[in-house]
């Protein structure tokens, strides 16, 4: 009996090891394939030139610029909204039924498939508000998508501020608003920003929400205003793989674009991890 128990236990634990090795193996295989096939495509010209001859030559500069603006605008839209919502959820939190509904709304928004965000953006921003297929429509759509992530991160950041700080401020005669603005937010800010940076990674990589709201298949021009269509890195990968007539030339370009996008996302999340680590180290409470 003891032997059977031992055998079961060692089979079980080794199975877990196998599972985790498989996952890690897949991750490394994946990264290896992308970087091995795309690394050689990336060059200075690839980063700084416009696509030529229906995307079979040239670079991806407009897509980099497009992704940059989409990300900046969407976070710029979602961050203040998210922080204020988090303040409501943590510091005011009344009436209770409203908190409950907002909570359900946040959780639901977090679970809505990204393609549905695309349809929402198409209906509301592109058509109802008449922004057309544009940088603005895409950024707003992505902003709504990023909102739950930012709210959750901000809430967590605010909740991790010790109650003593708040009490001390209130005891000194500060009002609730002053306490939030001068004590709670500054203390929570680094963590809030970490959350925002993580959502940058998410927003920069999304494709489905911008397919019908912002992205264009092919342009040599950079956006002049928020009402222009833009190229974007993730959409560019998709377009290279599914459109056009020269797959043999397009697939390497797609790998190259994927390297740029991955590098961007990894860089951003590394920055977030470093910031988070620094805060934890510095924190004295």
């Amino acid at each position: 009996m003891t032997n059977i128990r031992k055998l079961k236990s060692s089979i079980g634990i080794n199975l877990l090891r196998l599972f985790i090795l498989l996952t890690v193996f897949f991750l490394f295989l994946f990264l290896y394939v992308i970087f091995a096939k795309g690394g050689s495509v990336v060059s200075w010209e690839f980063l700084t030139e416009s696509p030529k001859r229906f995307m079979t030559e040239g670079g991806i500069y407009p897509a980099i610029v497009g992704t940059f603006w989409l990300t900046v605008l969407s976070i710029g839209f979602a961050l203040p909204l998210g922080i204020f919502t988090a303040i409501f959820m943590t510091s005011y939190a009344k009436p209770y039924w409203l908190v409950r509904i907002v909570r359900v709304a946040i959780n639901t928004l977090a679970g809505v498939p990204s393609i549905i965000y695309g349809l929402f953006g198409l209906t509301v921003f592109v058509r109802l508000f008449n922004f057309g297929v544009s940088l603005l429509s895409g950024a707003l759509t992505l902003g709504v998508l990023a909102l739950p992530v930012i709210i959750n991160a901000s809430e967590e950041a605010i909740r991790s501020v010790p109650g003593d700080f708040r009490d001390a401020s209130l005891a000194l005669g500060a009002t609730k608003r002053q306490t939030i603005l001068r004590v709670i937010l500054p203390t929570a800010l680094p963590n809030i920003l970490t959350g925002a940076i993580i959502s940058i990674g998410r927003v920069a990589g999304e494709t489905a929400p911008i397919m019908f709201t912002a992205a264009t298949f092919y342009t040599r021009l950079l956006p002049k205003s928020a009402m222009d269509e833009v190229m974007a890195l993730p959409y560019h990968i998709y377009a290279l793989m599914t459109e056009g007539a020269h797959p043999a030339k397009q697939v390497p370009m797609a790998y190259g674009t994927a390297v740029v996008l991955l590098a961007l996302v990894l860089l951003v999340s590394t920055v977030a991890i470093v910031i988070r680590y620094r805060i934890r180290k510095k924190r004295k409470w």
Partner: peptide, 23 residues
């Protein structure tokens, strides 16, 4: 292990799609 698994979560879906198609 934890950051490695987090890394999987950070990879854009379109890049997964590329991997599935081309590799």
């Amino acid at each position: 292990l934890k950051p490695l698994i987090e890394l999987l979560a950070g990879i854009p879906s379109v890049v997964y799609g590329l991997f599935g198609m081309a590799f």
